[in-house]
Simulated assay, not measured.
Amino acid sequence: MERVQDPEVRDWNFPRGVASVALMVGYAAEHGVPVTRMLNGTGLTERQLRDPDAQIDAYTELAVIRNLVRALADRPALGIEIGRRYRITTFGIFGFACVSSPTLGEAIDFALRYLDLSFTFCLPVAQFREDEFIAVVHDESVPADVRQFLVERDVTAMHQVMSDLLGTRLPLTRAEFRFPAPGYVDRITEVTVVPPRFGMPDNLFAIEPVLLEQPLPQANEHTWAMCLAQCRELVHRRRARTGIAAEVRERLVPRGGEDGFAAPPGIDVVASDLNMSTRTLRRHLDAAGTGYRALLDEVRRTLAEEMLTATPLSVSDVAIRLGYAEASTFIFAFKRWTGNTPAAYRRERAARS
């Protein structure tokens, strides 16, 4: 039976740290490109690149990427070279959570749930099959002028990090790319080992599913739990967006009514409450990189995980408090968010506590 797991984020426009920018600026400096040229048009300073708590938006990193690609346009396989420099330590607490995960499969599950703690622009979707695990890497929304660079960078970085997790090179069974074969296929093959195929319908790489169950050499249950808590707090702060999205989120939190917990308001009601038309609200949310359904899912998932972990409420009671008319509808939604049923999620969390 095939299972598909989407990343938690819907697009690449999420806030991120500066480690990725610092890495690219450092690489460029090694090849004679001054820092000022790399940071041109970003508003960033060299000092900010040394601040581990600094946060930037995705468009700022995109501006640095464009500066890099323009400055080193004559270097073949630039995306491959950059991608190989992303290591576990580049990702901070996100990387430590991955490396201390019990298995590669659980590290992948965690990474998809908290993908907005990474630096990717190409969004991976996991396909779990009996005979093969496939990561389909979507680039459709990535700007065309840097699309191939970012596919090469992000796929190489994913392969590099997964290899770091295993403590050995990750063996691929397939590697496919949407773009035509470049003049440096040999450089890509150095990463994939298996001969890559080009001009294919999707960007993807695949591995034997048995690798997903392989214990990671640095797995540590206590460290993993600590890192998960820190990642949860960090992503909560980043997702607590300001502006219109925060106002909508506040109105979507279920509240008790005369007959118990009222269902969350529809988008028309939220728009009216904010003194604007539904069309205007949709436009504002789209400009903020989100939507009514995505925000409702965010609120419901956060509250569901909290109630399933911290309270003895039954699955049916949790469903009612989240505004679902039927427990079965909530179970289906929760499985779409996490890949697990609420009951299985609760058992796993109880086993780890």
Score class of each variant (00 low, 15 high):
residue 91 F to E: 14
residue 219 A to Q: 09
residue 40 N to M: 14
residue 199 G to T: 08
residue 338 T to G: 05
residue 302 T to R: 12
residue 49 L to G: 05
residue 284 H to D: 09
residue 248 V to I: 09
residue 98 C to F: 03
residue 177 F to C: 09
residue 284 H to C: 12
residue 131 D to Q: 09
residue 98 C to R: 02
residue 217 P to W: 10
residue 147 R to A: 03
residue 91 F to G: 02
residue 164 D to L: 01
residue 301 R to C: 15
residue 279 R to T: 14
residue 76 P to L: 00
residue 292 Y to L: 06
residue 151 V to G: 02
residue 36 T to Q: 12
residue 155 V to T: 08
residue 332 F to Y: 13
residue 59 Y to I: 09
residue 349 R to P: 02
residue 80 I to W: 01
residue 184 Y to L: 00
residue 199 G to D: 12
residue 120 T to C: 02
residue 136 V to G: 05
residue 304 A to H: 08
residue 269 V to Q: 10
residue 279 R to N: 10
residue 115 L to Q: 04
residue 267 I to D: 00
residue 253 V to C: 02
residue 85 R to V: 00
residue 346 R to T: 03
residue 304 A to W: 07
residue 125 V to L: 01
residue 6 D to A: 13
residue 258 E to H: 00
residue 297 D to S: 14
residue 253 V to P: 01
residue 129 R to E: 15
residue 65 I to S: 01
residue 34 P to E: 04
residue 216 L to W: 12
residue 18 V to I: 15
residue 332 F to K: 15
residue 290 T to Q: 06
residue 68 L to F: 08
residue 228 L to S: 04
residue 322 L to A: 07
residue 211 L to Y: 07
residue 32 G to P: 06
residue 43 G to C: 11
residue 280 T to A: 14
residue 287 A to V: 12
residue 73 A to N: 09
residue 74 D to A: 14
residue 199 G to A: 09
residue 214 Q to I: 08
residue 350 A to E: 14
residue 162 M to G: 03
residue 293 R to P: 02
residue 133 F to C: 04
residue 120 T to R: 03
residue 350 A to T: 14
residue 166 L to Y: 05
residue 96 F to N: 03
residue 227 C to L: 12
residue 56 I to W: 14
residue 17 G to E: 05
residue 61 E to W: 15
residue 256 G to V: 08
residue 305 E to A: 07
residue 214 Q to P: 00
residue 186 D to W: 08
residue 47 R to Q: 15
residue 114 Y to D: 11
residue 240 A to V: 10
residue 50 R to H: 15
residue 199 G to S: 08
residue 212 L to P: 04
residue 188 I to C: 05
residue 159 H to Y: 04
residue 242 T to D: 11
residue 321 R to D: 09
residue 345 Y to H: 13
